[in-house]
Design a protein around this nucleic acid. Sequence first.
DNA 1: GTGCACACGGCAAC
DNA 2: TCGGTTGCCGTGTGCAC
Length: 818
Amino acid sequence: MEISFIPLDYDYFDWQGKNYLKIIGRSEDGKKVCIIDSFQPHFWIILNEKISEKRIQEIQKKIEEIKVFCSNRTTKVLKTQFCTKNFLGKPVKAIKIFISNYKDAWAIAEKIDFKEVRAKREYDLPLITKYIIEKKLLPLSWNRVTGEILNNSQEFDGLDSSLEVDLCLKVKKFQKLENKEILFNPKILAFDIEADEFDIGKGEILMISLVGKNFKKVLTWKKTRKKPEYVEVFENEAEMIKAFVNYVKKLDPDILTGYFSDGFDLPYLRARAEKNKLRLNLGVDSRQPNFVRGKISSAKIFGIVHVDLFRFIESVYSQYLQSETLSLNDVAWELLGEKKHDFKLKNQKTLKEEEWKDYFEYNLQDSVLTYKLTEKFWPDMQEFCKIIQEPLFEITRNSMSQLVESYILHNLEKYDEIAEKRPLHDEIAKRRSRPKYEGAFVLQPKAALYENLAIFDFTSYWPSIIVTFNLSKSTLLEKKEKDSLEVDIGKKVYFSKKPGFFPEMLREIIKRRKKHKAEYRKNENPILKARSNAYKLLANASYGYQGFFGARYYCPEASAAATAISREFTKKTIDKINEKGYSVIYSDTDSIAFKLNGHTKREALDLLKEINSHLPGIMELELEDFYKRGIWVTKRTGEFGAKKKYALINDQGKLKIRGFETVRRDWCNLARNLQNQILESILKEGNEKKALKIVKETIKKIKNRDVEKEDLIIRTQLKKPLAEYKAITPHVIAAKKLKESGIPIDAGMLIEYYIGETKNKKALVRERVKLPDEKGNYDINYYLKNQILPAIENIFEVFNINVNELIEGKKQMKLDVF
DNA sequence: GTGCACACGGCAAC
DNA sequence: TCGGTTGCCGTGTGCAC
């Protein structure tokens, strides 16, 4: 039997003491297929260089006799092979050790104890990763698979008959179908639950919505007289949960998707199924979801890829979103232009008959949004999966640094490298306590309103430095060598000029990103965009990876060298721009803003060309944009210009605002909106007159108590459990108030409050905190002095105007007089 | 009691 | 365990005077 097959979900099992893979995917004609493949795992030991051939053979012979007994099985070494490989860029003598069961690789490695063994490696890779690297059955890629159909076979203890699939094949061989792009549209099913208690399992699940292509359903046990046609009513919670499982099985999706379903929906379903003595047998082998431990446990369902879209967005895309929170509502609004339905959750017992309809609608809409967002992110997930070569389940949950690491592991073969090991507990502790290294350069600006500006920035600064200067763990030298690169990072460090695999991989990533970006420009489709973007994200994360304490290829010297080199280039470039008759105003890391001083744009572009002709390697400076005006302000404390705070307007009238309160979510909308208007007015008009008028109107509005409460609410995130706070700040007080009113408080919650008026005018801010629902007058003085003033004071200072006087009314009187 | 410096905490820039 | 450092600024806190 021969089929075209695309792998979606990977799992493994033991049979007769050996490892087998069971991989679920689809055939070209849409059948759900499970293929079973054998796998002969191995790991490596690396030997000292001066070892004799005879001694190597002795060691091999002794290793081949090793056996371990654990968990009711015996695992043995099957064979060994002597090889010359590379490790951290250097040739090494190594022995490849094949074993019968990979789960015991660790135990076998522990039994190997010869003084000639320098290191043991690759016993700590996940089995599925190891399998994919070895056999190259890549996720989401089409393969021609030849095999034997298993139909009620005794082999593998009758595994095939327990699987709900159309076809089960025991693999003989397979081959990647190159140059054949069969379009694969996964069947997506989105779900969302509503429960009457927020704590997992504490209340009952009231309803479950399911949305697929041409499918919309809300399952409930609540009996209401009038209900929308998509609502299906069951006798009780247990029957509803059973129906949910049955629908999932019947609809047979490739992807079951939820929004924070790892942390809420699936754990809740599990808890309620247990309570009702039901099995949540969602897997194609009828297993229940497996909760893989982690900071948030990941719910894995065999044969259906459970995607928690929130986690993918959080780890991979959040930095590119404008949304102030990653709530479904905010993200859907930004990406789809749609919102959740307006519905204020309250206790179901007090819900009126007609309100249930709204509740059903609300529940359905959450699944609709999750479904649409998953469709929208599908190209991105797919491209990441293909590029990183890890299964979709892992891709959608791993952090960027893990994705970088997976990419490395799946590409080591080209360099004949043995993989480095993961750091263990003690090593991590040591790395975490390392002193910080110096970061990038930030130029102190002079506060003023400037006209006719340009900004240059370095293209992919960190990756281009790492590639150009060959900075990595494997190229770091112990001591100075002939023709090595010397970098001062507080002490002298040296890097080899012989290209290392990490910088070379990064070079390849950047090359591909360029290629796919060009392709996308010719043919704008979502797949090409996602592909180009995935390479970009991967390149950008590589700098952080080397400085990350959990990395296999951790190298703080490389990170510190990269920042040292960046400071040098940025400063040199600033000098050069100044020398050519321009005036540099500001610079942060990889960008430089300067005044044209009467030069034309053409001349500025010529300067850019000239600078580029002297930059080494793949380093490149590019034009970010030309700007009509820009404003920099002073810090509130001291008279120096503030860094990381500026606003610009380009020739097309588009604003670019950085660092100001306008873009910070922990300021009330009143202050943010006002500041935004002020900046826009000043940048557009070129003076402060109109802006001043807006300020006066706003102050009047505040004093007259005409401001809506929504605009006064301050939102601050609770970053850790309440009890851990040393400083009792206003948002901590607000969180305590919430808790007292019966709302569960968790780290990560965005706490909302406003500042109310009290008799004691000098009370601490935290003593004036009120929750949004609490009645009371807002504190006029607080909003004027602590919100409005800080937001605009420094902007007007540029024009020598004292806003404080305006607020207190002195100047206002004078102005009124004239 | 007031003024100051500093720690804590959150969030942004890159 | 689950990228990094730089920087701003409000609020709280402890100390000097």
